[in-house]
């Protein structure tokens, strides 16, 4: 398989994987406090107290690196009319009938939608996380707001984790995607099949 088209630069790849690593660390430490059935995950971080100390720090680091990545990729993720049609043909998407779908550019509608869901989740997680970060911000907020933030934090975390499960599965499902983010390169055939609009665009350059 000839991988000749550059899809991600080394900086973009490093940025993505740094966010991914921090997502796993923040996610696992958060899940430890999410439900008693997962409290054992706190052992991975050195116990419950360390989990409480580390989780918000990991979360803030994840947010900062995600913000940089989001600024890099936001321009490619504007939804258009084709995207609405693409989302309406979910049956064709899920059954690998790409030839029936409207032309996809650098990102398909699913990827774009995921991008904006992640942006929203990250913003909610940061804001609510600060409100419930008892060690530094416990005195600043009333209990009513803290209760609301606790619910918002758990809800946004749930949406984020579920979205990332879909994201990871999509990468496993569409062969060549993991390689694209690891090595930065995709084959011409891959680009033509999955992102024909993008393929044409880079052909013109």
């Amino acid at each position: 398989m000839k991988h000749e088209i550059q899809r991600y630069t080394p900086s973009e790849r490093s940025n993505h994987w740094a966010v991914a690593i921090l997502f796993f660390l923040a996610g696992l430490s958060g899940l430890a406090l999410f439900h008693p059935a997962l409290f054992w995950l706190s052992s991975l971080f050195g116990g419950g107290v360390w989990t409480r100390i580390l989780h918000p720090l990991l979360g803030v680091a994840m947010f900062v690196l995600f913000l940089i990545m989001a600024i890099r990729f936001a321009g490619h993720n504007r939804l258009n009319a084709n995207d609405r049609q693409w989302l309406g043909q979910m049956g064709d998407v899920l059954n690998n009938r790409e030839e029936r779908l409207p032309e996809v550019g650098r990102y398909n509608a699913g990827q774009k939608l995921l991008f904006w869901v992640l942006v929203l989740c990250m913003l909610v997680l940061l804001a609510s996380g600060i409100v419930i970060w008892r060690e530094y911000f416990g005195q600043l907020f009333g209990v009513g707001l803290i209760r609301l933030a606790a619910v918002a934090h758990a809800l946004a975390a749930f949406v984020l984790v579920t979205s990332i499960i879909v994201h990871i599965y999509a990468a496993i499902w569409v062969k060549g995607s993991v390689d694209a983010m690891l090595t930065g390169k995709v084959s011409r055939a891959w680009a033509r099949k999955h992102h024909p609009g993008w393929f044409k665009e880079i052909g013109r350059k």
């Binding site: 000839k2 496993i172 499902w173 569409v174 062969k175 055939a189 099949k193």
Partner: peptide
């Protein structure tokens, strides 16, 4: 099943 690119048909 996975969505593969058939490189032969390229």
């Amino acid at each position: 099943g996975p969505n593969r690119v058939d490189e032969e048909e390229d």
